[in-house]
């Protein structure tokens, strides 16, 4: 009886039921991710241990390693071990270094996080105001020249992938001008080029999206209402248009942030940045599957977390969203 009442209470509170539903989805997604990462190793053709140790490794060594990794157990036993390991923070052991995967990840994750978060901050701080300003300047077909310049610049910048931007930046600022270090992780100046390489493309995309969203919001009836109230233009744009443009912007911003997490893989490789990205590539090439698996999990959880945060923010921003879902 009480349980029924409680569940009815949750159903009646849109916020609680939204949080419940969204958390449930997050947990299911985590499980799917973990299982997929497990399956990934199983799907690798041939014997992963043989592949990792090389063709010349003696049979005994391969067998011993297989035993140690539990690869000879039935599949569901392995799966059980694997899930239990995840709960206790045991991601297995790296085949190439012999270190625990968790430790390797712990060493490398902060470098990647710093890069991604800094770049994201730069993107938001630059792109939103730029998008708003250009939307206002070019609204209703005004200033076609400015619009053309803005669109072509951003299209061009967005078309260049981050690793090529990185190479270009290195060639210009590190090789030709010598202002910043080419690679590695030293003082603050070492951050400039990698962060710029990560941020330029997404900033171009986001500012375009903000502009387009602002323009479409400016075409709405309620903007006409705001103008009919004779509010100053500044209030019309900032108070009435911008919040409505942000929902779509935020959705894209989330995708962009996860995209930048992926972008770090390439950029870290250009700058020999000691992060997860350079590590996963090396481990793929060395066929160090436990390490690959661990890093895939970390990236995956990161993506799912970003999506969770974005969904919650969207619900907070848009008073209709909770209603819409139910």
């Amino acid at each position: 009886m009480t349980a029924a009442v409680a569940s009815a209470g949750i159903r009646d509170n849109p916020w609680l039921s939204f949080a419940g539903r969204r958390l449930g989805r997050f947990v299911v997604s985590l499980w799917v991710l973990a299982s997929t990462a497990f399956l990934m190793i199983q799907l690798v053709p041939g014997d992963p241990v043989r592949a990792a140790l090389g063709m010349t490794a003696p049979v005994e060594l391969v067998n011993a390693r297989r035993q140690a990794l539990g690869l000879d157990d039935p599949l569901w036993v392995q799966y059980g071990h694997y899930l239990r390991g995840l709960f206790t923070g045991d991601f297995g052991t790296s085949m190439s270094s012999g270190l625990p995967v968790a430790q390797v990840i712990g060493d490398r994750l902060p470098g990647t996080l710093k890069l991604a978060v800094l770049a994201f901050a730069v993107v938001v701080v630059v792109a939103v105001p730029v998008g708003v300003v250009f939307a206002v300047l070019t609204r209703g077909g005004r200033r076609r020249g400015v619009e053309l310049g803005f669109t072509s610049t951003t299209v061009l910048l967005a078309a260049v992938p981050e690793f090529l931007v990185a190479v270009g930046l290195v060639a210009l600022f590190a090789v030709a001008l010598g202002w910043f270090p080419v690679a590695g992780r030293g003082d603050a100046s070492a951050f400039v080029l990698p962060v710029a390489a990560l941020a330029i493309g997404p900033a171009a995309v986001l500012s375009r999206v903000v502009r387009v969203e602002m323009l479409s919001v400016l075409g709405n009836d309620f903007i006409r209402t705001a103008r009919a109230k004779r509010l100053p233009a500044r209030l019309v744009y900032v108070r009435h248009a911008l919040p409505n443009a942000l929902t779509a912007t935020l959705t894209l911003g989330g995708l962009m942030l996860t995209g930048m997490v992926a972008g770090t893989v390439l950029v870290e490789n250009v700058f020999a940045w000691p992060g997860l990205g350079s590590t996963i590539v090396q481990s793929i090439l060395q066929k160090d599957y436990p390490l690959v698996q661990g890093i895939v999990l970390v990236y995956g959880v990161g993506v799912l977390l970003v999506n969770l945060v974005i969904d919650v923010l969207l619900a907070l921003l848009d008073p209709r969203s909770t209603i819409r879902e139910s």
Binding site: S29, L33, P45, G259, G263, Y289, L304
Partner: peptide, 24 residues
């Protein structure tokens, strides 16, 4: 729902994932 989850992942991460399965 599988598509919904997969769409949330950036293409490069998915590509790396499949690269492990399909081999270098």
């Amino acid at each position: 729902s599988v598509v919904t989850i997969a769409v949330a992942f950036p293409g490069l991460l998915l590509a790396l994932f499949f690269a492990v399965i399909f081999g270098v």
